[in-house]
């Protein structure tokens, strides 16, 4: 019965779990970025006609879900489970969005690792035969994150160059057992790692060890090397966190070469002033379910490893002087 479990972290998804449909909605700044053609929708402003940024983020997630379902001509009740997570206190965006879907709901929190946490759980539900369609969604909004984690949105201060910019957007995916598409083949569940970093403006460096650890488990347990994949992406380490992850992997003799990049570094142009790159749940969601998903479908990519990374701190834990724990989960998506 345990034959699908390899090592202590990795699970092989033996019976097919297809990433059948995706829906990606981006904010206005993201819409001006280089990947704009891969988004199903781009919002014109940050408010999106809602009274608060929290409500705007709900709109993002609901729209992403609707788009993903409509691509498969599925109604809101046509799925077996809804798995969702976001960054706001008590994951309210996901909770309110779940009200729209009359199916069993599981709220998850892995911070910005929500995407792969959701995809991995969804794939396990399908592979285990506990359902045939799972809807997975995650979102983040620059202003709702900013006001919860940092300062009021209109407060003026100088951001350091290594700080990152929370991506506004949402991604949703329908994983099914029947509609052929790129397949989720393995999931590597990462461990929480304490990097010792206490600076909440330096999340990339706080998460890099967790990302490297998850990749290490993945490569070791499956006995493959990074060259096996056409593309390896981490979720939101940013420019400097990405270099750190690469260096950490080098210490264990795994070379992350030209096939490695970070979602946070892909969403914006350099002139968009986002510091070291994008962050937030939407960082990995927009790139993976938008750009990478299209390239997988077109056959430009065949084997991709997505390692979404989450920082598990809160403003309270930081004010109380605790360092920032982080977690990362890796999901491989391959064409058959």
């Amino acid at each position: 019965m345990n034959s699908s479990r390899i090592g202590n972290h990795t699970i092989k998804i033996e019976s097919p779990a297809y990433l059948s449909y995706s829906g990606v909605v981006a904010g206005p700044k993201e819409g001006l970025g280089p990947l704009t053609g891969d988004y199903d929708g781009v919002k014109e402003d940050l408010e999106m006609g809602e009274k608060s940024f929290e409500k705007s983020e709900r709109r993002l997630m609901e729209d992403a879900c609707s788009i993903a379902l409509s691509k498969g001509n599925l109604g809101k009740g046509d799925i077996d489970y809804f798995i969702a997570g976001d960054l706001l206190n008590q994951i309210t965006v996901s909770g309110f969005c779940a009200l729209e879907h009359p199916v069993p709901f599981l709220g998850i929190y892995g911070a910005c690792a929500n995407l792969t946490q959701g995809l991995g759980l969804g794939a396990m539900f399908i592979a285990g035969g506990y359902g045939s369609r799972v809807l997975v969604a995650t979102s983040s909004h620059n202003c709702s994150a900013e006001r919860q984690y940092r300062y009021p949105t209109e407060y003026g201060f100088q951001k350091p160059g290594w700080a990152q910019w929370t991506v506004t957007g949402a991604g949703a995916a329908v994983i099914t057992s029947e509609v052929k598409a790129p397949r989720i083949t393995t999931v590597t569940w990462g461990e929480a790692v304490d990097s010792g970093i206490k600076d909440a403006s330096s999340l990339g460096s706080a998460m890099a060890p967790a990302a490297a650890a998850a990749m290490l488990f993945h490569f070791q347990e499956l006995q493959i090397d990074p060259q096996y994949y056409d593309l390896i992406v981490t979720g939101d380490l940013g420019q400097y966190g990405m270099q750190l992850a690469r260096e950490l992997m080098e210490r264990r003799n795994y070379q992350l070469q030209g096939n490695y990049t970070d979602c946070g570094t892909l969403i914006y142009y350099p002139h968009q002033q986002v510091g070291a790159g994008g962050s937030g749940c939407a960082s990995s969601a927009l790139v993976t379910l938008g750009n990478i998903y299209r390239r997988l479908n077109e056959g430009e990519l065949n084997k991709v490893l997505v390692v979404a990374t989450g920082a598990l701190h809160s403003p309270t834990s930081c004010f109380q002087g605790d360092s920032i724990p982080a977690v990362a989960h890796a999901v491989s998506i391959e064409n058959e």
């Binding site: 350091p160 461990e191 460096s205 490297a212 650890a213 290490l216 400097y240 260096e247 950490l248």
Partner: peptide
């Protein structure tokens, strides 16, 4: 505290922080 850093990458928290400092751009 930093059990994972030590076990997986043979780094103490201090060594990792030095590594981070090297990567970080200096504020102008």
């Amino acid at each position: 505290m930093s059990r994972n850093l030590k076990e997986k990458f043979q780094l103490s928290a201090k060594e990792y922080q030095d590594m981070v400092q090297q990567k970080k751009p200096r504020p102008p």
